[in-house]
């Protein structure tokens, strides 16, 4: 591609509570390092959402989550972009927003954007908080590491597939985490997810650029972080029996 890749972080003022804005930065830098000019835009909720190749949505508090959904519905750009093949990577509250329904703070259902066939309800148990490891079903992505912090249970409908199977943690609440369909991906993983999982970042970049292969990068820092997190989530914790592991 010869024009610049445009990456939009959606509403950091409403969906920026958990550091997920880092996903947009990771995608931008990894594109640039492969020689693709890339433009990172942090699009606040008081303006129109720019047309872009990639959209990232992050976690946020309950009230702002509902407001973000209203604004995105009114704006319409995100839904049009998905129909035109844009890549969407949505985390936690963002993941719930792009589904068909999610719970407001009082538990009452709020209609989502319907860009991904998942439905979220309020869980009964205390919030799922902790390290999570997921074996991704996406080609070439492998194991994912992240930190989850949510109270929702999410069911993946027939129009989407789970992102992967949970090795430790809670995820969707049914031994899977996240979902994907076409070029739309949702997950509960913070960290940020794309900083901890460069293979997933590169898959999204291949979709966005149309390239079958991307030049390898020296990811020794990311790999060191990954080994440390996998050991923390699966090694020591399992030994102490602090988290249930299947």
């Amino acid at each position: 591609m010869n024009r610049s890749l445009r990456i939009v972080v959606v509403y950091p003022d409403l969906l920026g509570t958990y550091g997920d804005g880092g996903n947009g930065l990771v995608l931008t830098r990894r594109a640039e390092r492969r020689g693709f000019p890339a433009e990172l835009i942090e699009a606040a909720s008081d303006g129109p959402l720019p047309v872009a190749d990639v959209y990232t949505l992050g976690g946020g508090e309950d009230g702002p989550q509902v407001r973000a959904t209203e604004s995105l519905n009114e704006d319409g750009t995100l839904a049009r972009a998905v129909r035109n093949g844009a890549v969407v990577f949505a985390v936690c509250a963002g993941y719930q927003i792009i589904g068909t329904t999610f719970p407001a703070a009082d538990g009452s259902p709020v209609p989502g954007l319907g860009l991904l066939d998942v439905a979220t309800v309020k869980g009964r148990a205390p919030r799922a908080v902790g390290e999570i490891v997921v074996d991704a079903d996406l080609p070439g992505v492998g194991a994912l590491t992240g930190f989850e912090n949510h109270g929702g249970l999410t069911e993946v409908g027939p129009g989407a597939q789970p992102l992967g199977r949970v090795r430790t943690g809670v995820g969707n609440g049914d031994y899977t985490d996240g979902a994907w369909a076409g070029r739309v991906v949702g997950t509960y993983l913070h960290g940020p997810a794309l900083a901890r999982n460069p293979a997933l970042a590169d898959l999204l970049l291949r979709w966005a650029t149309g390239e079958d292969e991307l030049a390898p990068l020296d990811d020794y820092r990311e790999q060191a972080l990954r080994s440390e997190r996998f050991e923390a989530a699966l090694g020591r914790r399992t030994a102490r029996g602090r988290r249930r592991v299947r």
């Binding site: 958990y18 550091g19 997920d20 804005g21 880092g22 908080v129 912090n149 913070h190 940020p192 900083a195």
Partner: peptide, 9 residues
């Protein structure tokens, strides 16, 4: 806090 994701803020 167990989650240092805030480093990205």
């Amino acid at each position: 806090g167990r989650d240092p994701s805030w480093l990205w803020d």
